[in-house]
């Protein structure tokens, strides 16, 4: 789940420290690194594609305003996911559970095989609908693991649980989604 960082690129922690020292380019670099994955995570969690940009913006705003809250136990991206997840939950509450999912307004990539593309879009829609019905911890663990490729230790650190409990949540989520998609 961590950003793939080559040795010649500064780490997220180094960029955060640089931003704290007044280097605004560090913030730009952090946004460039993580905005895409954060947007995908929010979209997969149930945000409509029209809301994703605003939610990404709010996620980064809250993160930079409260940088002291990031103590490095989990990766910076993981921490952003947590903030974004909280924002999305608040948004769901504000809308009183009204469904935020939408696929029609999403930009579909061009494809040489429109039938295969439609089938993939349909599969994605079903998975996304299924993910949206999961309890929050199951949904977060599943997406962090399946969508972002995070390991259980890091997921557990980000969500304030144990690696064993994260594994259990993941398997519950998989079981439930398999039943839903059968």
């Amino acid at each position: 789940m961590t950003a793939r960082q080559t040795p010649d690129l500064p780490t997220d922690a180094a960029l955060v420290a640089a931003y704290r020292n007044g280097d605004q380019r560090a913030a730009t670099e952090l946004v460039g690194r993580h905005a895409g994955p954060v947007g995908r995570f929010l979209y997969a969690s149930g945000a409509s594609s029209s809301d994703v940009d605003d939610l990404v913006q709010d996620t980064f705003f809250r993160a930079f305003r409260g940088l002291d809250g990031w103590r490095g136990e989990a990766s910076f991206r993981s921490w952003l996911f947590t903030i974004g997840g909280n924002l999305l939950r608040d948004e769901f509450r504000k809308r009183k559970g009204r469904q935020m999912l939408s696929l029609d307004d999403r930009d579909l990539p061009d494809s040489a095989d429109p039938h295969a593309e439609l089938a993939a879009a349909e599969a994605e829609r079903r998975v996304r609908d299924g993910v949206a019905t999961l309890p929050r911890l199951q949904r977060e663990v599943f997406l962090r693991r399946a969508q972002q490729g995070g390991d259980y230790e890091e997921i557990a650190a980000a969500l304030g649980t144990t690696p064993g409990a994260a594994r259990v949540h993941y398997h519950h989520a998989v079981k439930r989604l398999k039943e839903l998609l059968r």
Partner: peptide, 8 residues
């Protein structure tokens, strides 16, 4: 999921 999403 969201791979085709151009966001931001």
């Amino acid at each position: 999921l969201g791979a085709g999403l151009r966001s931001p």
